[in-house]
């Protein structure tokens, strides 16, 4: 451990400038959320990878009809919605931690976190809208439709 050791972030010039008595439990809630969402995400993502990559023809089977067939079922809609929200919040919080650790200038840290939060919000809203407004048999479409669509 002694030869190749990477110093802990923010460990140079020891000065503890912790927020004193801000009265907020946000950081502890975030810490707990990472562990709880992590356990759930292991199940959701392993299931997602198994069904999409291992079953049947694996990744070759993925096209519009495959996605439409899955989202015709509320089970997979809820599964994917939970995966989207938990994974995005888990990932956003993880990257927030890394920015806090390594971006030392206040301005840099604020800028990076603003970009992060905007990107995350856009992706969460977009993904949620797509799951709920998705039409498996769009009018005018001809290729790769799931088998339950009426013939065009």
């Amino acid at each position: 451990m002694s030869a190749n050791t990477i110093a802990s972030p923010r460990s140079g010039g020891i000065k503890y400038n912790r927020n004193k008595g801000s009265g907020s439990n946000f950081e502890m809630a975030a810490w707990l959320f990472m562990r709880l969402s992590g356990v759930v995400l292991v199940v959701l993502i392993f299931g997602h990878l198994f069904v999409n990559l291992m079953v049947g023809e694996g990744i070759h089977a993925i096209d519009f009809g495959f996605v439409a067939g899955k989202w015709a079922s509320p089970f997979w809609q809820v599964w994917d919605l939970a995966m989207l929200w938990l994974a995005m919040l888990h990932g956003t919080n993880g990257v927030r931690t890394i920015i806090n650790d390594y971006a030392e200038r206040d301005g840099t840290r604020m800028t990076l976190k603003t970009v992060l939060y905007i990107a995350s919000a856009v992706i969460i809203v977009l993904g949620t809208l797509v799951i709920f407004t998705f039409d498996p048999c769009p009018a005018g479409a001809v290729i790769d439709l799931p088998s339950f669509c009426p013939a065009p």
Partner: peptide, 29 residues
């Protein structure tokens, strides 16, 4: 940390490519 950041950036792209199902079957496929 490294795997976490890699997965996060993939996830951003993965939601965007999946969102193409809302554009058209041709675009997604």
């Amino acid at each position: 940390r490294v795997t976490g950041v890699v997965i996060f950036f993939f996830l951003l792209v993965h939601v965007l490519d999946t969102s193409l199902v809302r554009v058209s079957p041709e675009a997604y496929t």
